[in-house]
Write a protein that binds this DNA or RNA. Structure first.
Lengths: 224, 224, 224, 224
DNA sequence: AATGAATGAGAATTCATTCAT
DNA sequence: TATGAATGAATTCTCATTCAT
């Protein structure tokens, strides 16, 4: 029965209303709900947060939430979607501008953390809360997540091909390790106070370590 | 812990049964419950898992769970305790045997992933499920977690002192990045099938990348 | 009192809904629940009555009960409150109209029983059921109850001062005995069928006995 | 469904063991359990008291309780039985010794309160706790109770016949009022501290009031 | 579109009672 | 007889979701 009961607890009758995400209505209100959701989810966690709390924080009636989202969980999905969409579109639009694999990798690192800089609540939702819904994680997030990891893996593979990265490591493992490293940095930053500097400083350091760690063995010191 | 009302419902006074871990009864049963819990939590997630499911999986009556654990959440705490205890005691007992900082770091990496090797369910519980209880994460796990990160950070700092690690990165950030990298590797491994080899292979690669990434700038390229 | 956890089970924070009596919603529904509660409590007793039975009797959903009352016990409290409030306000408003202590006492007797006349179920709830909740009895009812007894005691004391009552009995004991006598009459009336006449007839007789019983010794039996 | 669920909550299987009251086993242990029960019932109320608490207070194992009592409720019944038996046997044995109705009535009053004097816990159990079980109250206690009330009523009727009591009051009502008065005095005495003297002092006063209150109108002051 | 009162399925937990030692 | 670990039925209360205004 695995995931069957993660969302609804009732849903005995119909299941009308609420469109996927296209037919957004006032747009304004939808945004207010999402913003409020980030705040309360970050504060109390997804499961401990009541829909009525989100509604109150957003300044709308409980029922209004359901005009914009099919369920409580869909709010989380939407939050996640927005971010992943940004990450993936960034990959497609901005990465080509960076010519080398190392530069591409550094750009990705800066982007992943940069996306959270200044948005501690969102960082927590993305890194911690998201994992609270295994349904989301497994059914929805996993595929998109893999897409993102694959994109990073391709950058690593690219670097291995053109000689800028060592070849004795698996692109997939590096991708996961890099993502995890950034996520871990964001997590502790979200849960407590960062120790020095913000996420951007951390981004530089993580990039420094990974890029050096991926550097290929010195090409035969060449003779002369 | 703050939340006063996580358990109870009546009887304010008596609250005898179920001790933390001392007065374990059969011991056997307690273990069976924990083992079953890992299985079902990993499969369905903490919140989606019903106490009755854990009981059924453990082959005991629902009420029996409460003879060994004060609440559903305490099962999770116990699971976490067991593992973290192992990690921390490892730090204290085994690390001194490794003389240099790089060796210590590699040992930690192997241990963190080695602990999960062959226990996919536990890996998922530790990395994913644990974050589902913000109460746990914030009140209980966070401090222990920080303790662990600090220990890693000290190894990095040690290496910086003795010249085996570069000094332009923060030990704290490196510790978090390393933990996150390992956690990320374990997470994807837990959620799907690893792409190549098991966790031990990944451990070696992560170690290779981090150790190279932390290597200090070549001491004065030597003179002629 | 002691019992701290009579309600709750989760969500430690939010606990909005259901105000004491101010934010009553439809008001109509609240009344329906109270009326139904008197009926089923009288029939089955407080502890043996399930909240769902009250809901069903009131024609509302189980959850609706909790929009108007914080807990099952609060329903009982509300029932009690209504009556005691009436008794006490009667004391303040109507008693002054009766000039002498004997008249005041007779008025109190008629009121205490008159309040229940025609409401057998309520009589049972007040006399029997109320005592089923020691929490209620000790924390809430006791103080209000004492207030009522004190008021009766003051009437007795007044009569002793102006010579209309004998002075060799304690006002406090008389108050308790009188209350008990009325309560006892109401109790048996509630549990079975009264033997002759209703409560009003009993009221007259109890008043007759107590007033004569309290009459002072004949002033100097006159001389020869 | 009235009383169906007052006692057991389970009772799915058999219902063996435990004899009524004749085949008492060690007798000693049975007594210890009853004594302990009075203590804890008085302190926490019948419903709020756990069988395990009674067992603990009695210094026996939970299961042992069931060797002497069929159910939790039967403990209460036994407690009640013991006392009512005393009251009724007193009526039969000692009352004949008192020749006149007034003397009989005073004897009853002294006995009813005297039974409780020095046993505050028992007083509370009898007067308050007993009412917590409507099943007991309605099915078991009521008939015995009525028996007792009838006995008192007969004394009143006797007095009315021989001219020692006024005839304008119903014996039944007087019996109930008297019982209630004594119960009320005992109740407040049980719940708090009596105001002056113990129950015996109160007994005298209640008797004084009732006997005077029941005195017949002065027989035509006779001329001569 | 918006509201928020009403719904009712569901779930954690308790505790009287049983029964293998 | 005595024990107390185990049982599992039962119950209160919560809260996501609906729908009449």
């Amino acid at each position: 029965m695995s995931e069957s009961s993660l969302s609804s607890r009732k849903s005995p009758k119909s299941r009308p209303r609420a469109k996927g995400s296209s037919s957004r209505r006032s747009g304004d209100k939808r945004e207010r709900i999402l913003t409020a959701a980030v705040r309360v989810f970050a504060k109390n966690g997804f499961y401990a947060t009541r829909v009525s709390e989100v509604a109150k924080a957003a300044g709308v009636a409980d029922g209004t939430i359901y005009l914009y989202f099919r369920s409580k969980e869909e709010i989380l999905v939407s939050l996640f979607e927005d971010r992943v969409e940004k990450l993936l579109s960034f990959m497609n639009e901005r990465l080509p501008a960076h010519p080398t694999a190392p530069e591409k990798l550094r750009a990705v690192i800066e982007m992943q953390l940069g996306l959270l800089e200044g948005e501690r609540d969102l960082a927590e939702v993305i890194t911690v809360i998201l994992r609270q819904s295994s349904k989301l994680m497994k059914e929805y997030a996993a595929p998109r997540f893999r897409e993102y990891l694959d994109a990073i893996g391709r950058i690593v593979a690219l670097g291995q091909h053109d000689g800028s990265f060592r070849t004795d490591v698996s692109p997939g493992i590096v991708a996961r390790a890099l993502f995890g490293a950034l996520d871990g940095v964001a997590l502790t930053w979200a849960l407590g106070r960062a120790d020095g500097g913000g996420l951007s400083r951390a981004a530089v350091q993580v990039a420094d370590v990974f890029l050096l760690g991926l550097s290929p063995p010195a090409k035969a010191p060449v003779a002369k």
